[in-house]
């Protein structure tokens, strides 16, 4: 069964034209690639486009995958390059249409595809696990995560509120996210 194969084996199969193998790779990695693109671009609609482009590029170049890197690292690099291209394109666009911001603000209201699956078992499991992971963080780390993600404060604002150096706040958020990543990594692939 495809589900039990390693990423590398799946790539091998995909190279030899197994039609389902690449689909399984996508299924495993689409959420993480989307998250990476979201981290790079800060907008869900842009991130979705970039993630899609990433998999198209990966599919086209799958025979170039040599196996000296992990499949995940290979996909990450394609995604980062894709996002940098998106950013360059957006920058050029905004320089060309400096006074045109109407379309830009409208796009924020596009319903993201990653926003609706609360009704699936998998998404529900994920929510429960994320909730447990966040609540099990040490208090000082949970505090900055709540301020950053729930109260949407800037690092500067958190630093002033907690009377902590800016660098401390940043490293706490970083540490919190790394700890969360480790807690979430124990999940099955397609959930984490």
């Amino acid at each position: 069964m495809l589900k039990e194969l390693t990423d590398e084996k799946l790539v091998e199969l995909a190279v030899s034209k197994d039609p389902d193998a690449f689909g399984e790779i996508m299924k495993r990695w689409e959420r993480k690639i989307f998250a990476l693109c979201f981290g790079m671009l800060g907008r869900e609609d842009d991130a979705r486009d970039a993630a899609q482009e990433t998999f198209i590029a990966a599919f086209r170049n799958i025979s170039n995958f040599r196996g000296e890197a992990k499949v995940s690292s290979w996909l990450h690099r394609i995604a980062v390059n894709q996002c940098l291209t998106t950013k360059r394109r957006a920058k050029t666009r905004s320089e060309e249409f400096l006074d045109d911001d109407g379309g830009e603000s409208e796009r924020v209201f596009v319903t993201p595809a990653h926003r609706s699956p609360a009704n699936t078992t998998e998404a529900t499991e994920r929510l429960i696990i994320v909730r447990q992971a966040v609540s099990s963080l040490p208090v000082d780390l949970r505090q900055v995560i709540v301020m950053k993600e729930f109260e949407e404060m800037t690092f500067q604002e958190i630093s002033e509120t907690l009377e902590l150096p800016l660098s401390t706040v940043k490293s706490r958020v970083y540490t919190a996210l790394r700890q969360l990543r480790m807690k979430l990594e124990r999940l099955p692939m397609e959930i984490g």
């Binding site: 993480k32 979201f38 980062v80 966040v134």
Partner: peptide, 22 residues
Amino acid sequence: VDEFAAVSSARYEVYDWKHIEF
């Protein structure tokens, strides 16, 4: 790049949880 992906993934899970549940 791998590190950025890991951090982004953790952040997105919190972000998504917040948006779906809260």
